[in-house]
Design a binder for these strands. Structure first.
Lengths: 159, 159
DNA sequence: GCTGAAACAAGTAGTGT
DNA sequence: ACACTACTTGTTTCAGC
C-alpha cells in the first residue's frame, strides 16, 4: 500500500479533474516548486496510482444513444474464458467483469439505438459457444457518474 | 448530429489515449499546422464531443479493492427521485442509472473490501426511504475496460 | 526531498492567403 | 478553412542546498 501526503493528495485532486492543467499552475497554488510537482507525478506514475490521461468523449454526441448493462449466464462455468475472449472481439462491449450472483459475466454495451443493441445481443452475443442467456438493463438515464473520493487518502499529517 | 472528418477522427483517437500529448506533435504526425489542431479541439469542445481531460486513478492502488454493481428495487416507482438524491450523498457510489428490467436503479460501488461494501449496503442504502431491496454483483475481476470505437465516426471522405 | 535557474518545447493569438 | 509568425507560457533537467 502506498503512502500519500497532503501534496500528493492535492495534486491528484487537481489532475484527475483536469489532466491538462499546467504543472506550474498547480505548483503556484500549492506554493511549491514546479519541479516538485513534476517529481511527485512521476512517482505516482511509477507506483501505478495514475496510468494515463484521457480526454473523455461523450458517447451520445457521436451517435451511441443506447447504454446497457447486460448479465450473461453460461451453460457451464468452464466456458467462461473462451466467452470472454469472444466478447472482447465485439467493439460495442466496453467492459467485461466476472461477477458473483445470478450471472457469470457482466458487461457494458454502447449501441447506436435499441435496435442495434438487439442485433448485438441476438446476432453476436447469443451465438457465442457457452452462452446460455442474457438479461439486459438498459439505462434510460445516468443520474450521476463521478470519480472516487480522495478525502480518506492522506495517511500522514495534513501539514 | 455532428460531422467529423478524417482530421477530427485522428485527433480524437490520439487525445483520448493521451490527453497530455502535445498538440504540436499531433500536428506533425497529421502533417497539419498546430493552430489547426487547436482549432479543431476547440470545436470538439464547443460541440460537447469532448468535455474534459482526466488522469485515470487506479482505485485498487488507493485501497478500494471491492468493485460491485448493485441493482436496486423500490417499494414504489414514485420514490425514484428522492432515492437517487440520497444515493448521491454516499461517496462510494460512483454511478447511478435508471434502468429497464427487474431493477429501478442500477449503481456502481467501490469499497475498501467486502465488509465495507456490506456496511454501505446495509447501513446506508437499505436505510433509504423507498428502497425495497438490492442485489449485488461483486466483480471478481475486470477482464477488460476500454473506450468506444471511433472507426465508424468519419462520415466524409477519408482523404 | 526540495528549490531555482536555464534551455528547450509547446500553447496562443494575430495576420494573411 | 487553413498556415505562418511572433510572442507568451509551460516543461524538464540538473546543480546545489
Amino acid at each position: 500500500m502506498n503512502h500519500f501526503d497532503y501534496i500528493d493528495q492535492q495534486i491528484l485532486l487537481q489532475i484527475r479533474e483536469d489532466a491538462r492543467k499546467p504543472f506550474s499552475q498547480i505548483a503556484e497554488e500549492l506554493k511549491i516548486s514546479n519541479s516538485l510537482v513534476h517529481q511527485r507525478i512521476r512517482k505516482l506514475k511509477e507506483n501505478g496510482v495514475i496510468n494515463k490521461a484521457e480526454f473523455v468523449i461523450d458517447e451520445k454526441q457521436i451517435g451511441y444513444k443506447t447504454k446497457s448493462y447486460v448479465g450473461i449466464r453460461l451453460k457451464e462455468a468452464r466456458y467462461a474464458k473462451s466467452v470472454v475472449n469472444d466478447l472482447a472481439k465485439i467493439p460495442e462491449i466496453l467492459e467485461c467483469n466476472y461477477v458473483s450472483g445470478n450471472y457469470a459475466l457482466f458487461i457494458l454495451i454502447f449501441a447506436y439505438d435499441n435496435h442495434h443493441l438487439r442485433n448485438i445481443l441476438y446476432e453476436q452475443v447469443h451465438q457465442i459457444d457457452g452462452v446460455a442467456g442474457t438479461d439486459s438493463f438498459i439505462c434510460f438515464d445516468t443520474n450521476f457518474k463521478r470519480q472516487i473520493t480522495l478525502e480518506s487518502l492522506v495517511k500522514g499529517k495534513q501539514i
